[in-house]
Design a protein around this nucleic acid. Sequence first.
DNA 1: CATATATCGGAACGATTGTTCCGATATGAT
DNA 2: ATCATATCGGAACAATCGTTCCGATATATG
Lengths: 203, 203
Amino acid sequence: MPYIAKLFLVMARTKDFDENEVLNKAVNLFWLKGYNGTSMQDLVDGLGISRSSLYDTYGDKHTLFIKALESYQSTASGKICQIISSVLPAKETIKQILEYISSGLLNDQTHKGCFMVNAEVEVAPHDRQVNEMICQNDQQVEDAFYLVIKKGQDTGEITNPQDARALARFTFNTVKGMRVTAKSTNDKAVFDDIIKLAMSVLD
Amino acid sequence: MPYIAKLFLVMARTKDFDENEVLNKAVNLFWLKGYNGTSMQDLVDGLGISRSSLYDTYGDKHTLFIKALESYQSTASGKICQIISSVLPAKETIKQILEYISSGLLNDQTHKGCFMVNAEVEVAPHDRQVNEMICQNDQQVEDAFYLVIKKGQDTGEITNPQDARALARFTFNTVKGMRVTAKSTNDKAVFDDIIKLAMSVLD
DNA sequence: CATATATCGGAACGATTGTTCCGATATGAT
DNA sequence: ATCATATCGGAACAATCGTTCCGATATATG
């Protein structure tokens, strides 16, 4: 039997851990302490797998960070899409999203904030790959807001006649602001004020 | 002559560098690469003074970071106070501040953003001292917005009758959002949209 | 059961981390 | 000019950094 064929026929030891489960732990570590603040030792300790398994499975630190950010992005935007897909009135959809984000931020005693925003602030300016991920995600989120707002304008629910693109940019900027504010505050009243006034722009 | 007296009478070698000038360089280094991203070697290279002079003059890395953040904060809020003190109409004052911040962000090709926001995101959640500086500064800025907005409401220039405190929180949150957005974008149109709509809340 | 091979734990690597220390240098007051 | 002392450059420190490597272990297939 030729050697190459053997490679695919002969199986070996299976991983002792669930790859996605461990990646999720990596997300939480990077999310909590940032890229530069998280050492490989922190990861070895926190993930519960050995150094070699870590490198064999996820590559080096930077590659793991990218994978963690990708994982976070897909689950996070998944939640948003879920809210959008529930065919509520446009303004109610926006409100639900803002309140979902707000409550997520407020419920975290560790003040992790948003992993994407953390990466945008700490890493993006020095890392082309991370920057592109951020830009792509931002465009995607902005577009999602745009579509909801546009729909609201078409149905007459949103009376503000200004460019839906501008309204989407404004709304998303409000979200980013809250994700920073949450880093040093957990005063719900502050977020309620922000959401109420941001929503009022859509009237 | 008693020993203590000598301490004040006998002078020794003077510093070869200007203390504030070098601190300013430290501000720019930490601002650009963050706390964890900036090594003492980076600082030695960037400040142009020796390791020992660095420690003798500014203390350890964390102490230097605090001093750099304090320095940034005082000059940054100084600029804002300057705009506020020019007794323009309230809404014009807010607009000037937002546009001043926007242009500052857009003119920086290195996407440093705002040093305070960077520290809030990267450091504040794990550093009580930095967190307190951020909270204190945020309160100060929010109060400044509050006073201008309150004045605008009293003169009838700002017709929105909602709580001036809420309006101040909202406005400041918009600023924080822009300071994140600037990390991965330099599209002026985005900032113009955000400012225009944030301002419209004050109508 | 035997075999091949991927996974694992842990030692080890050189580089870099933040910090300390020391001898040489420079300087203001006497 | 002398003196006391703060400043300076650079060597050196232990600790940690990210990464590599190797022998032992475990397991799906033949």
